[in-house]
Simulated assay, not measured.
Amino acid sequence: MSESTRLGRPRTNPSSSTASAREEILDAAAALFAERGYAGTSTRSIAERVGIRQASLYYHFAGKDEILLELLETSVRPSLDFVERLRDTPDPAAALYALAAIDVGTLLATHHNIGSLYLAHEVQEPRFESFRQHRAQLQQAYVDLAAAVRPQGDAAFLGACCMQLVEMVIPMRRDAEPDADIARSIASACLRVVGAEAAAEAGAALLA
């Protein structure tokens, strides 16, 4: 039986939500990680927030590490999937705009701004290596697109600048929910970094 179909014990406080138990656990954990930090959050407290027994939580996740890893992956996986769709795009500047916009949207959609934990010391430990590798792959996509737009430029620097611009949405979201145009604004800023502002319209068309 897969993790997603395992059945736990009856809830101590049944929820009327239509979300799956797994999604409810992820949401509760993200909220607690944001409030108390990773070290200050126990699986018991996550289970209590959801309204299930602690033993039931283990039907869905092996432990706290697996929960955090899944949450971190949700902050990069959709963007990496989009990179694959851009492989054959003939206009790298438009692709850069589209990737930045999608990436901002991905970060905005994560549970309780989970990107704010990127620099937590726990995330630097070996058990989260797969996430760090995926984030590095995403940065490499920015580098590759920057290199295609400006072959004579410092692609590693330009790509890193673009990714940093995108991840600015994390502290912005922490302070106040950004406006609806933030993805477009940040994507346009990435084009300015590589000197290709005119590609914004083509990038927007890629998104459409």
Rank of each mutant, 00 (worst) to 15 (best):
R184A: 12
R6I: 04
P151E: 03
Y142K: 04
A101Y: 00
G63P: 00
R135M: 09
M163A: 10
V149I: 12
P78E: 10
L86E: 06
H60R: 11
P126H: 09
Y38P: 05
A141S: 12
M163K: 13
V104D: 09
G37L: 02
D181Q: 14
I67D: 11
T18M: 08
I186F: 06
S2Q: 12
T5H: 12
Y142T: 00
L7W: 03
A39I: 04
A136R: 04
R173M: 11
M172G: 02
G37Q: 02
S42L: 01
M163G: 10
Y142A: 02
R6K: 14
R184P: 02
I102P: 00
L99H: 00
A146P: 01
Q164F: 10
I52M: 09
D103S: 13
L32P: 00
A147M: 06
F82W: 03
M168S: 12
C162P: 02
A21C: 05
A34G: 14
Y58Q: 06
R11M: 15
P126C: 03
A93H: 04
S45R: 15
A47Y: 05
L138C: 00
A155D: 07
V169L: 06
A55D: 05
A100C: 10
N113T: 10
R9C: 08
Q164T: 15
I102L: 02
S79I: 04
Q124H: 11
A205H: 09
